[in-house]
């Protein structure tokens, strides 16, 4: 069922493992004038060079492990991700608990190199591995009357210290409209740079919806419910005027406290130039999903 969508970025754009593991040394070598024989030519010139493994795994928003950007890296090591299971329930033919290993055995794992745009106006390019959400939902058999999908993150305060503080209404809940969930761009990521996805990035399985702000891409999922009601989502409840249900990347609709017109690509250092944010984060193929909607009101 998979491979309905083709990357505009190729595997050649991603940093090979021997490069990202040694990136700092390579940068040091580069600045001292040595040739970078192991470095792919595309990666030097392409503006869409994926971020390094270090960047993707040390700069995270995962408030279950703390609100600082490095807190998830520091605190997520203790999270137990095996065994893991996802409950799929609601408007499906086969509700039940699906073991992570059983899911993986049935899925076609492919690479998706996606841009990620955080609502805080920073961005990355990330080489995910995973499968389309549509294929996972197909296992449970969605009913035609299902209109929305609700996702829930693991609630385990003894391993997720951030959940001890009521800064958000735990557990973390996110949601998609059914057509968004079934879109071939929407994936469940289980890997990063050909490694199992690190805990701080949402192990063992997290949603990735590349045309929406990052907070929609919920991590460490334990429940998926198909419903005919629009889910009440965590950030939307925390700040209804700041974080909409749709949260589509949109440079013309500002966050009340900052502009969304531009973003800073992580990894550019202290003097990196801001770049223009693209409508739907550059994924124009999703525009038909929102035809006729007022995206300023339904932000």
């Amino acid at each position: 069922m998979a491979r309905r969508w083709t990357n505009d970025l190729s595997r050649g754009d991603a940093t090979p493992k021997q490069c990202y593991l040694n990136r700092r040394q390579l940068i040091a070598a580069g600045s001292s004038g040595l040739a970078l024989s192991a470095w792919p030519a595309a990666a030097q010139t392409d503006a869409l060079e994926p971020n390094s493994f270090e960047e993707i795994t040390t700069y995270n928003n995962f408030y279950e492990f703390g609100t600082g950007k490095t807190d998830p890296k520091e605190n997520a090591g203790q999270l137990t991700t095996s065994p893991w299971a996802v409950e799929i329930n609601g408007m499906v033919d086969k509700p039940g608990t699906y073991a992570f290993d059983d899911i993986m055995a049935q899925m076609d794992i492919e690479e998706r190199i996606y841009r990620l745009r955080c609502v805080e106006a920073w961005s990355m390019v990330i080489p995910w591995q995973g499968f389309e959400l549509a294929d996972l939902l197909a296992l449970a058999g969605p009913n035609p009357e299902a209109r929305f999908v609700e996702f829930q993150t693991l609630m385990r305060p003894e391993e997720m210290p951030g959940q001890e503080y009521p800064i958000l209404d735990w557990p973390y809940i996110e949601g998609l409209r059914m057509d968004e969930a079934m879109h071939p761009l929407t994936i469940m990521a289980t890997g990063l740079y050909d490694e199992p996805i690190p805990n701080q990035n949402g192990a063992p399985m997290r949603l990735v919806v590349p045309w929406k702000y990052g907070f929609k891409s919920i991590k460490s999922i334990v429940r998926i419910t198909l419903t005919d009601d629009q889910p009440s989502t965590t950030w939307n409840k925390a700040g209804p005027s700041e974080y909409g249900f749709y949260a589509n990347v949109n440079p013309t609709v500002d966050h009340p406290r900052w502009s969304q017109a531009t973003e800073r690509r992580v990894g550019g250092g202290l003097f990196s130039k801001r770049i223009d944010t693209l409508m739907f984060n550059g994924y124009d193929e999703v525009a038909p999903l929102y035809e006729g909607m007022d995206l300023e009101a339904q932000f």
């Binding site: 700092r24 490095t70 920073w122 800073r264 992580v266 990894g267 202290l270």
Partner: peptide, 15 residues
Amino acid sequence: LALTGAMGVEPVNSL
């Protein structure tokens, strides 16, 4: 610290 990477991968915000 910000120039040498000791403030993390997004030093503008950290600084």
